[in-house]
Write a protein that binds this DNA or RNA. Structure first.
Lengths: 246, 246
DNA sequence: TGAGCTAAACCAGCATGGTGATTGGAGCGG
DNA sequence: CCGCTCCAATCACCATGCTGGTTTAGCTCA
């Protein structure tokens, strides 16, 4: 039995360039660890750091980096002491959701998809706003409404749509559902980062379109303020039927 | 000017136990880096590894771990070469979404919230299924439907609801919208991990309730198969008005 | 038997020093 | 002026060895 010699030079560890590209060693090791953890029962002991480090074939520092990554992903748990080591963690669905979103390809987030999702979630947020909006929340909404009105008067489409998003964000802020809030706000960001200006649906002239959008949102905030649920729901549906931003 | 001495012993680096708890040094350093990156313009050079390592007051290994973390979060970018170093990155909304979900408190995912979200997304998935379902997809759906029927015949509520979820997952699989798919499937997982059995709405006896749920889903798959959009939409709305699982 | 101590096996940091790749500027010859 | 080579800065790994905390198996002893 020969102890394998230390990998002092790069050639000793750098595997053939084919298909290795772009993935650094810590990430490779992290993948191995994640695979190990996924294959094991939750709570199972995977081994000591040293054992697994050797198994991954990396140095201490690199292994610590890999470990930190999988730990951040909530896939493994490290425990000290005599019976310590690495343990597979039961992955909560929420963590899986986070990771699956992170794993999503960058261009997987088409704006059209995001808009569609946002439209589906809008009614929920309006519902929540109806139920939970405090006076201060409504005040914040009206402030954004003012910005929209100013932008509409200036015919500044860019400012208008930004104020519009801000209003929707204010509405979302009211929801007690953290998941919904977080997701909706991110959708808004996705849309915002790809959208340049307002654009009416069909042939309606822009000033009239902006004005009608403003009126609709003002009515929505009024309905929320008045706790007029049917009206608010109707308005948000109209909102999503007539909007078109690109 | 005195060069500060090496921190050879633990007392040299371990700051007073108050308020430090639970956050390891690599995470602390990662926070510092993230703050730096957030304060800077996207693309700005934050400094060399060595400079920032000293700024964070940690050792090389620890700093590398911190670096790997913020890199995984996509907030910084490390570049080699003479003009290399750390650079602030423009964080994509999708990455922010992923991180915000990961940051969500574990108990933030109440089942009720998840159910509400799922119900809001169901119509979108049915729409997508109507548009994109291939014959093989429908076959898969019918297989789950069979499992539901068997479970219904056995009056096995557990098996029934699992088959039901599997059917919904099949429907979701058809959607070309990766974000929607991913999110919906995770919601299903959240619900699944907290739900024990079917429970009818109101006083309807269980066998009849299960039968009616089966009929509804069977009709839905038929409508998808027949590309009968109005009917499918109507069914999914009925689905979400009458369901109650806990 | 049971309470208490010891020591082994872990992990978390630290420091130092080395090889090799990547990058861009500086200098030089044609 | 252009292209070439060379070099300094910087990163990505590697190896080794140290201090000190935590956990528990196992032993001792009343």
């Amino acid at each position: 039995m020969v102890a394998d010699p230390p990998a002092l030079r790069r050639a000793d560890w750098e595997l053939p360039a084919t298909a290795t590209a772009a993935l650094r060693r810590p990430e490779q090791a992290a993948e191995q660890l994640a695979a190990l953890a996924a294959a094991a029962e939750p709570g199972a002991r995977l081994g000591t750091k040293e054992e697994l480090r050797v198994h991954c074939g990396v140095s201490v520092g690199t292994f610590n980096e890999a470990l930190r990554l999988v730990q951040a992903r909530g896939v493994v748990d490290v425990r000290p002491g005599r019976t310590g080591g690495l343990f597979a963690t039961r992955q909560s669905p929420l963590v899986r959701l986070g990771n699956s979103v992170l794993a999503l390809d960058k261009d997987a987030a088409s704006v059209a998809d995001a808009v569609r999702l946002r439209d589906a979630l809008d009614p929920l947020l309006v519902e929540d706003a109806l139920r939970h909006a405090a006076p201060s929340d409504v005040t914040a909404m009206r402030a954004e409404l003012d910005r929209m009105r100013t932008a509409a008067a200036d015919l500044d489409g860019i400012a208008f749509i930004h104020a519009n998003w801000a209003l929707h964000a204010r509405i979302a802020d009211v929801s007690p559902n953290a998941m919904l809030r977080s997701f909706y706000l991110s959708l808004l960001e996705i849309i915002e980062s790809h959208t340049l200006a307002v654009q009416p649906l069909g042939d309606e002239p822009l000033p009239e379109y902006i004005q009608s959008r403003y009126d609709l949102h003002a009515a929505l905030v009024d309905a929320i303020d008045a706790r007029d649920e049917p009206r608010a729901i109707a308005l948000i549906h109209e909102h999503n039927m007539t909007a078109h931003t690109s």
